[in-house]
Amino acid sequence: MLPDLLRQMGFDVPRREADRPRVGVSACLMGEPVRHDGGHRRHALVHDQLSALVRVTPVCPEVSIGLPVPRPPIQVVELNNQRRVRGVADPDQDFTEALGEQAGRLPGPLSGFVLKSRSPSCGLGTTPVHDAQGSARGLGDGAFANALAARHPRLPMANDCDLDDPLFARAFVLRVFCHHHWRAGGNAALKMLRHRSATLGEPLLSGTRRFLDRLARATP
């Protein structure tokens, strides 16, 4: 289904993996046992379908900052109107800055990122936010995801759970390939992509064109 959609937009999936769009993926979604409990959260669409179309770069910000596997759990806590990532058993351990800094240390260039939902490092709008007593009070971003979105505001980003919606998955893959071609060809590529998008039905047509408009306001 996804390859057919790409062909509809005139995209060829390069045979060489090195020529494909590079997409960061939370490593646990690729089946890597890097979670705090030593397990993984392999996501079938990401592992089996997306990885056949793009160049996947697995990332685990928590392991990257030196945390072991397995490891004591961490959580997002709101203190004095600031959101911090701290140890659950040892609140004096604060990993906020260290996790955020990993957003600037990624191999690139990236044209998308798939994040593990609800993670204190990787969740995008889905992570439980706790009060000082440890009670969940709402949802927000993990520290890494927050820093990534701030650093790359036009980068296509998705939680793993978002991709369980087939329409969202199709829209995300289109944005990844549009971003990749925009980086290579600038505004000339955007003009071509806008023309090709006329082959799409709604709501993919409107969503793709809104994304192209966002790219047009930026510099590759």
Rank of each mutant, 00 (worst) to 15 (best):
Cys161Asp: 12
Asn80Glu: 12
Arg118Thr: 15
Pro156Leu: 00
Glu78Ser: 10
Ala158Trp: 04
Leu148Tyr: 13
Gly186Ser: 04
Cys28Asn: 00
Arg22Pro: 01
Leu124Ile: 03
Ala171Met: 09
Gln8Thr: 15
Phe211Leu: 01
Ser206Glu: 04
His195Arg: 12
Phe95Ser: 03
Gly207Thr: 06
Ala145Leu: 02
Val129Trp: 14
Leu99Ser: 05
Arg194Glu: 09
Leu5Phe: 09
Ser111Gly: 07
Leu124Val: 02
Ser111His: 14
Ala18Asp: 05
Asp131His: 07
Gln8Ala: 05
Thr57Met: 04
Gly66Lys: 08
Gly185Ser: 00
Phe172Thr: 11
Lys191Val: 15
Cys178Glu: 14
Ala171Pro: 03
Gln93Leu: 14
Pro21Phe: 07
Arg194Phe: 13
Thr208Lys: 10
Ser206Tyr: 08
Leu174Ile: 15
Asp213Leu: 02
Met192Arg: 14
Ser26Tyr: 08
Phe113His: 06
Ala169Met: 06
Leu45His: 08
Pro61Gly: 02
Arg86Pro: 04
Ser51Ala: 15
Met30Arg: 08
Arg217Val: 01
Val76Met: 07
Ala184His: 11
Asp37Lys: 02
Ser206Ala: 05
Ser119Ile: 00
Val176His: 11
Thr126Ser: 15
Ala171Tyr: 06
Asp4Ile: 05
Gln49Leu: 10
Val13Trp: 13
Ser197Tyr: 08
Pro73Leu: 01
Thr127Gly: 00
Thr96Pro: 03
Arg118Phe: 08
Arg16Tyr: 04
Ala145Gln: 02
Thr96Leu: 04
Ser121Thr: 12
Gln93Cys: 10
Ser26Phe: 05
Gly123Tyr: 09
Met192Gln: 12
Glu32Asn: 07
His36Thr: 09
Pro21Arg: 03
Arg210Val: 11
Met9Asp: 02
Pro33Gln: 07
Ser135Glu: 05
